[in-house]
Design a protein around this nucleic acid. Structure first.
Ligand SMILES: [Mn+2]
Ligand SMILES: [Mn+2]
Ligand SMILES: [Zn+2]
Ligand SMILES: [Zn+2]
Lengths: 132, 132
DNA sequence: TTTCTACTTTATAATGATTCTAAAAAGGTG
DNA sequence: CACCTTTTTAGAATCATTATAAAGTAGAAA
């Protein structure tokens, strides 16, 4: 299985559960955005096995820490994650709570002119809110 | 009192509680960022009166809807609000969960080249995450 | 293979921000 | 004042997320 090494390299044991979650997250052609709830449903549908919510949370957070997933900064009752870990931005459709990718090339370079003493920039993310 | 009219013009009755919350939010020289919890503490300190949490939530949401406050898109366990309702951006310091304003002039114009059919842009916000 | 240990999973409880409820209080109008 | 509507409030409910701690598993060593 192709995810065993990916997990090992990150210091995560390739357990049955983690491998199945990898399948659901990373086997698809396109990247996608999801909440933990979305992911739990998807796992139940795609794979006929019960992975506990606690494990899904643990794994998602482990993947996030390792850089396999990104959190999307947004105000919502649930946290959104992204399997697209490249540097990019988002549209957020306020009418249906859906996220759409905005590639860097769709936004152009962002030049942060202000500097904060002793701090370095970790990420620069643009959120474009949409409405009808 | 200078907030009575502001409230009336927005269809909000100028109640004792709303006027006191206005004082705490809008009387200060500088704008600031806050969570509902922050605000509740500030109210208890600045004004010696008990305004219930429910009322603070109601009022903050009413003000947000009227455009007197802005929500800041960020992933945190609490929602952050901003008394600076001008178009601007933020630094978010991951080491202490503090927000710092980034004026439009500190970022330069952002040109969103991608369009979404039937949707219009409501806001464009940049979040710059900082670490030590 | 057997054993040992650290890591992982899981069901379940706890947490905590936010929202809901419904009764009491206050605002506004005539 | 009398009336009706809006607002406030204490407390309960909700619900995403995190913590707990017991049972299971992976990997390595013997
Ligand atoms: Mn996380
Ligand atoms: Mn709100
Ligand atoms: Zn994305
Ligand atoms: Zn601000």
């Amino acid at each position: 299985m192709k995810y065993i090494e990916k997990l090992r390299n990150s210091g995560l044991r390739p357990t049955k559960q983690r491998l199945k979650i990898c399948q659901v997250l990373f086997d698809s052609e396109k990247t996608f955005h999801f909440t933990v709830n979305d992911l739990a449903k998807k796992i139940k549908i795609k794979i006929d096995s019960n992975i506990s919510l606690a494990t899904i949370y643990n794994t998602v957070h482990a993947f996030e820490k390792k850089g396999y997933l990104k959190q999307i900064p947004i105000n919502s009752s649930q946290t959104y994650f992204d399997t697209n870990v490249s540097d990019h931005h988002h549209f957020y459709d306020l009418n249906n709570d859906k996220l759409i990718d905005l590639e860097n090339s769709d936004v152009g370079p962002i030049n942060i002119k202000k500097k904060i003493n002793g701090k370095k920039i970790k990420s620069v993310e643009v959120l474009v809110k949409l409405e009808d």
